[in-house]
Simulated scan of single mutants.
Amino acid sequence: MTLSSPLLLVAGLLVTAALVWAAVVLGRRRTRALAAAGVTMLGGRRASLGTGLTIAGVGVLAVAAAGPAAMVPVPRTAGTVILAMDVSSSMGADDVAPNRLAAAQRAARAFIEAQPDTVDIGVVTFEQGARTTARPDADHSVALKAVDRLKITGGTALGTAIRASLTAITGKQVPADPDGAIPDLGYWPSATIVMFTDGQNRGGQNRGGDIERAAETAQKAGVHIHTVGVGTTAGATVSVDGFRLHTALEEDVLTWIAETTGGAYHPASDAARLDGIADTIDLRVTVSDEPLPLAGGLIGLALALLTGGAALTVFRSGRVI
């Protein structure tokens, strides 16, 4: 238990102790005086109980005045979330209305708005390269503006997206390592990456190479990756630099990334499923000790004691004082 004003507690307990001393001394004097006069005092126990309740009420008030609070464990969603948004050319496909990117933007906005201010949210955009467009911040309006500014361009490099997201989380540059070494970024168990993408990987990478090393880096750092598959397996055709290309959702690689890092794959083959993504992604729940004020309950107890003491006094003597 903690106290906001320990000095008030000390002063209140001194007053309570003084009242106890006065009640004992005066009670003994009254008893001796009545005995000397040959008078038997009736209702002595009731009188003592009334005095005891009143003094106890004063003591409890003294504790309440000190502002006591109990530290209780409170679970809450907290930590850092990076939204990795695919802005590659394939995200212009219209198999999810009005197109994949617009649907992902709407879902990302809903996700941001659903998070409490205990969660710092950042945004990373990726195509063949990747960059942080909003650093993790408790001010979610920054992330919302970054999502609204997204434009379609280039190919897709999932491994680069993961490394850029880890860089935003840790503040340390996470470069590609052609030798396959997994860098030590420390342990970030409260961080999560939510990747909105169709999984079309056209950055010269494959699951057995750069993507695998990037996912294992996230796993080693304790960062979960939730992948949101935007698109359909049937796919659609998009126009890129004058060419017509067929693009389809690649669920296998997105499922593998999520399972490798302890996250989950969330299929979103239509706009309705994307709109509900915020409710399906479980972020990290942390337990922190938070103060629970006790003054209100103690004041109620003190009033009950004082009322009981006053009632017994009135019942005994027919007057309050």
Rank of each mutant, 00 (worst) to 15 (best):
L3R: 03
L3Y: 13
S4F: 10
P6M: 02
G12K: 06
G12L: 06
L13M: 15
L13G: 09
V15L: 15
A18H: 09
V20W: 14
V25C: 07
G27V: 08
A35L: 10
A36L: 13
T40G: 12
T40E: 15
M41H: 13
G43Y: 03
G44R: 10
R45H: 10
R46N: 01
A47K: 11
A47S: 13
L49M: 10
G50H: 02
T54C: 04
T54P: 00
A56K: 00
G57W: 01
G59Y: 04
V60P: 00
V63K: 01
V63H: 04
A66D: 05
M71V: 07
P73G: 08
T77D: 00
L83I: 13
L83F: 10
A84W: 06
S88L: 08
D94E: 15
D94T: 15
V96T: 06
A97M: 10
A97T: 13
P98R: 11
A104H: 02
Q105R: 14
A107F: 04
R109I: 14
F126G: 06
F126A: 06
Q128M: 09
G129M: 11
G129W: 10
A130F: 07
R131E: 02
R131Y: 12
T133C: 04
A134K: 05
R135C: 00
S141P: 07
V142D: 12
A143S: 11
V147T: 02
D148R: 14
D148Q: 14
I152D: 06
G154Q: 05
T156Y: 02
T156I: 04
A157M: 02
A161L: 02
R163H: 01
I169T: 05
Q173I: 11
D177M: 13
P178E: 09
P178W: 01
L185R: 00
Y187T: 14
A191T: 04
M195S: 08
G204S: 08
D210K: 07
A214I: 08
A214H: 08
Q219A: 15
A221R: 03
V223S: 05
H226Q: 06
V228H: 02
A236E: 05
V238Y: 00
V240E: 09
F243T: 11
F243Q: 15
L245N: 09
T247V: 14
A248Y: 05
L249M: 02
W256D: 11
A258Q: 05
T261F: 03
H266T: 04
S269Q: 15
D270L: 07
I277M: 04
A278L: 02
D279R: 13
D282A: 15
S288A: 15
E290W: 01
L292G: 00
L294D: 00
L294K: 12
G297C: 03
G308K: 09
G309S: 08
A311I: 12
S317E: 14
I321K: 09
I321L: 15
